[in-house]
Design a protein around this nucleic acid. Structure first.
Lengths: 345, 345
DNA sequence: TCCTCCCTTTTACACGTGTAAAGCGTGCCG
DNA sequence: CGGCACGCTTTACACGTGTAAAAGGGAGGA
């Protein structure tokens, strides 16, 4: 076992280089002459030393940390977004610390406090649908560079935001469904749960006017008492099928998890949604949840460009952090969705 | 806006309470007289102050942080495990910091260094199947309380470990499949990728000897060049179906993600695996991935007790941290799996 | 009125590293 | 050989909080 060394001071006597030089070395080796770098690196080979994370961050003007808040862990879509954010931040040399709200506004609030107490350089927040405490977001915004991602309360128009253009994305899939069959019915989320679902619903109505068909919307009420989107989709569409309705229609779901439930409802009624069957049931979703290709039938959907969203969120944050902003006008960036045609529609 | 205060020193003059008393208050209000607590709390109402996370952790003997390493983000099973760990740690008053390996041993190694530099009280690691650099785990183990979770290299028998008893769990589903139909074929993972899959394969062979049938194993070779377990399952079973084989057998898959692919392969060949069809194709998995109930058909599987595993990992870690261990014998805890009977088998 | 106990304040030092300023040694150039 | 620039060392102070020891103050009891 190598001898263990706890402080930079001990290390400096152990390898015969002054402490300030070591400090510069650990921050950026190029600030130290090559020969000295070699001597330090050889010394580190013979010894067990790790600089103290807290001590280093306490004194730097910048902590090089980006805090990310994710709403819950049981949804691969958010994990994909998180992955994209983490890679973008890694590339920029930032350390990412992720905290999860676990569907609880109180936990989200605590996470925000933790980030403030850490003096993170900036924060990326994916909110809890309608359930976030907006005071928490305002507080974060007032204290540090802050970007909202994925969804946005309509009461916060003055915050940097990166997301999907739901008018475009929902319009795209609506047009597609009209092109290959009868105009779709919209399977919504219950009221008061999810900004994105409501935006898509409105985009669907808009597109229906443009194309000249009468919008039909189901699933606006909560039939289930739990919070699983899949169960909501299954219950809402199942109720229609039970009355013999909609069995040969196109169903556009507010998101993929609702669509998963819709497909289950179809299976229970002996129906197989599909693009190949002429004039039959079709089901489409929204988001491109990673499990879409593996469903039976594989789910046709509109992909959100999670890669672009994550990259943009990080680059915008860095722009604010580094002060490369002429004015403090918040920037709203919306990426287009793109069709993912599979078996279900 | 409330006036912003940056240090405990400023706060102490602002509300007229000495700094050491404030320090005690923030660590544990019960160590301060009730009247003083009230005065401090009233003061905090009028002022904007957050204690510095780094400064507090630097000087305490204990950082109250548990570090968790998760192998990748695109698998809900690990997220479920993480959720259980986070709740258990939260209940114990610990802060959890999670870092993701993103399938890359180098990133995993960096995460381990980060935890060591943070002086976390302990670390929970879910390894990268066969791909973790074991030196990293040994290094962590030598420096701090350390528990391995979910999977374990056979070269690390002397480390605390919490997981599932695969002999029991695989035996259970094997027995079930034998009870309701012909003895199952085992759909394995390619060699050199996954300790758990191999353990289950061995458990299957063991049980086949006990029940007196000849084990049949497919999928030990990698047909796909990518790393998606689902694609492996689809390719391996699809190759059998293409030859007209196994179309009326029970298929026991090494895990649920492989089973997802197996179900896809069945669908492509016009087969519907199911428990209801007499003598027909059956497909079963292992793990109870959260998406199992939403597949078509819903996947029969053996659930790992993720809740118990997460709780035990945290409680064992706390036991080591608090020194409540008589000797340093590593503790191996294996929980039983339990059947989740659904449509597919 | 005095004593005692409890909680607070005061004072001082500690944690491990960042960072600025001044002094020193070395090698290069003319 | 003298001068200069560069990079290192030395020295000193800073960050924000933990923590220990000693001194102070107020309430309660005798």
């Amino acid at each position: 076992m190598k001898p263990r060394i706890n402080t930079m001071g001990e290390l400096s006597v152990a390898i015969g280089v002054s402490r300030p030089t070591l400090s510069r070395f650990f921050q950026d080796p190029s600030r130290v002459k090559a020969a000295t770098v070699k001597r330090i690196e050889e010394g580190l080979e013979r010894v067990e030393y790790v600089p103290n994370f807290f001590a280093t961050r306490m004194n730097r003007k910048s902590t090089d940390i980006i805090g990310v808040i994710i709403p819950y862990l049981n949804d691969l879509f958010f994990n994909k977004l998180l992955e994209s954010i983490e890679f973008a931040a890694m590339e920029a040399g930032m350390t990412v610390i992720t905290l999860c709200s676990h569907s609880d506004p109180a936990i989200e609030a605590r996470a925000a406090e933790t980030f403030m107490s850490m003096n993170v350089d900036g924060a990326v927040v994916m909110p809890l649908g309608d359930h976030s405490d907006q005071k928490v977001h305002f507080r974060l915004k007032s204290r540090l560079p802050f970007v909202l991602v994925d969804s946005r309360p309509n009461t916060m128009p003055n915050v940097d935001y990166v997301g999907t253009n739901h008018v475009q994305s929902t319009g795209l899939i609506t047009e597609y469904l009209c092109r290959v069959g009868a105009p779709p019915v919209f399977l919504a989320m219950p009221r008061g749960t999810n900004f994105n679902a409501l935006e898509r619903e409105n985009a669907y109505i808009l597109k229906s006017k443009e194309l000249g068909f009468a919008p039909e919307i189901i699933g606006t009420e909560m039939l289930q008492d739990n919070w699983h989107f899949e169960d909501h989709g299954e219950a809402a569409l199942g109720a229609e099928f039970a009355q013999g309705r909609l069995m040969d229609r196109s169903i556009l779901c507010a998101n993929d998890r609702v669509a998963v439930g819709a497909i289950r409802a179809a299976a229970r009624h002996g129906l197989v949604p599909g693009s190949s069957t002429k004039g039959g049931l079709r089901i489409a979703g929204h988001d491109e949840n990673p499990l879409c290709p593996y469903l039976n039938p594989a789910l046709t959907t509109v992909a959100q460009n999670t890669d672009a969203i994550g990259k943009k969120a990080v680059s915008r944050l860095l722009q604010i952090i580094r002060g490369n902003v002429e004015d403090d006008t918040p920037e709203i960036t919306l990426f287009d969705g793109y069709l993912k045609l599979r078996e279900s529609a």
